[in-house]
Design a protein around this nucleic acid. Structure first.
Lengths: 238, 238
DNA sequence: CGGCAGTTTGATGTTACTCAATTTAAGTGG
DNA sequence: CCACTTAAATTGAGTAACATCAAACTGCCG
């Protein structure tokens, strides 16, 4: 990981008086600030759960790595709402309301910043820039939720998968992670299935088809977008 | 319509210094306040479009009747995001960002309050109660969006329809509109289909099945929930 | 060289879609 | 109030998309 990729560039807490503190990340080469007692820096390994359906005392920001946010039904079905990348606030709603019965699990090694919720909400009122950031994240998410509802309600299997891959590709490109239309890709078929409402078997077939058509290739834990134009045509639902 | 059902009880603008003005509704028997120039009171008839995919200068609150919020794809597919009932802010996001390329259409005769967006956003800063209301609506909506994503991603046709009917029934019951487990219901099969991602024909079959099982009955522009417990069991996805 | 988890492939089953025809309900004008 | 018109709901038959089950294959790690 190079400094230029250091996630603080994406962090919603940046420039809100909260952020300098994120630079206490162990591997960071950037200048340190003093860490306040109400912030913690934590690391998790692949498969670890950061949250498990219980309300949390903390607000989390993902600093590095991949995670996903999901909910499980009593009969085992799992819906993945979104994938979290560097700089993502886990749930802007958790800032306002404590509840939110969702789980978050790490897809790679990840590092997160955990802020005491009480401290953040207390500072929310007299820190307009912070509350603006939270609100902005809410808005961004709401836009994503509506696009997801659109694609789950109206899209074919192919459109759903293309939409997901397109979205991830765009997000990673904003973070300067993509080189030669290819990037490390930690999702298994099961994750794509649970995010798109399909079965992993069917996802495999569709991805195979997309590969044969030279649109995307998913192998060796990497995703390569061979034909971005075509992927966009399929996945953007306009 | 009795005074006790008058929508201001649900209006997010109530007690924010914006709301008294909603009482200028022509049919209201409640005391009037002076209407500021940046508020308008409008009426629409069945099928009229209040918004049509274009950014609007106004922020809308539904005062009376039913409407729905949707987006149409270029090939004709339509996804209905939600149904609007008395007191609903059309789109909390429109308050923060002007854009939002969605359409809103009336299902019944409706009356709406239209506020100049510029005036509202200007007052947003020094009116904490108002911004709190907007934020709260954002939060409520975000919770709904996630439940919708859950049901569209994981639910069967029956679960999707039950979820929708259950949600509407709850919202109307909060508004004291339900008498004897029955209420006026302006949705056609096509609306339910476009909200659940099914075809109207299939919706018809499923509803017919629910009727035979004495769970709900949808006829004569009314919905009757015969077995609320069973509807809840099917539609709550836990 | 196993052993394991994840992926791919094939065969078959189920759910939901499409198309067409019929029935019901809701208006409309006489 | 009743024929007539029209839109919407229902029903049936056939089809396509996706799910399920089972088996074979691949890559990876000890």
């Amino acid at each position: 990981m190079t400094n230029s990729q250091w996630p603080c560039a994406m962090c919603p807490m940046r420039e809100t008086g909260f952020c300098g503190t994120l630079l206490t990340a162990p591997t960071s080469k950037l200048p340190l600030k003093e860490k306040p007692p109400w912030q913690e820096f934590r690391q998790f390994r692949v498969g670890d759960k950061v949250l498990d359906g219980e309300p949390s005392r903390h607000i989390y920001v993902l600093c590095h790595g991949w995670a996903f946010r999901y909910k499980r039904l009593s009969d085992g079905r799992r819906q993945i709402f979104n994938f979290l990348l560097s700089g993502d606030l886990f749930s802007p709603l958790a800032v306002i309301r404590g509840e939110m019965r969702v789980s978050v699990q790490a897809l790679t090694e990840i590092s997160v910043s955990a802020f005491e919720r009480a401290e953040v909400t207390e500072r929310l009122a007299d820190h307009p820039l912070l509350s603006r950031k939270v609100l902005e994240t809410c808005v961004t998410n709401a836009g994503l939720w509506e696009r997801v509802i659109m694609v789950l309600g109206q899209g074919s299997a192919e459109e759903r998968i293309a939409f997901l891959l397109l979205h991830l590709t765009r997000e990673l490109s904003r973070r300067n992670i993509i080189r030669d239309h290819s990037y490390p890709f930690p999702l298994r078929l099961q994750h794509i299935a649970d995010a798109t409402g399909l079965t992993p078997i069917h996802v495999s077939r569709i991805i195979g088809r997309l590969r044969k058509r030279n649109i995307v290739d998913m192998s060796g834990a990497r995703l390569t977008v061979t034909d971005p134009t075509e992927l966009e045509r399929i996945g953007s639902l306009n």
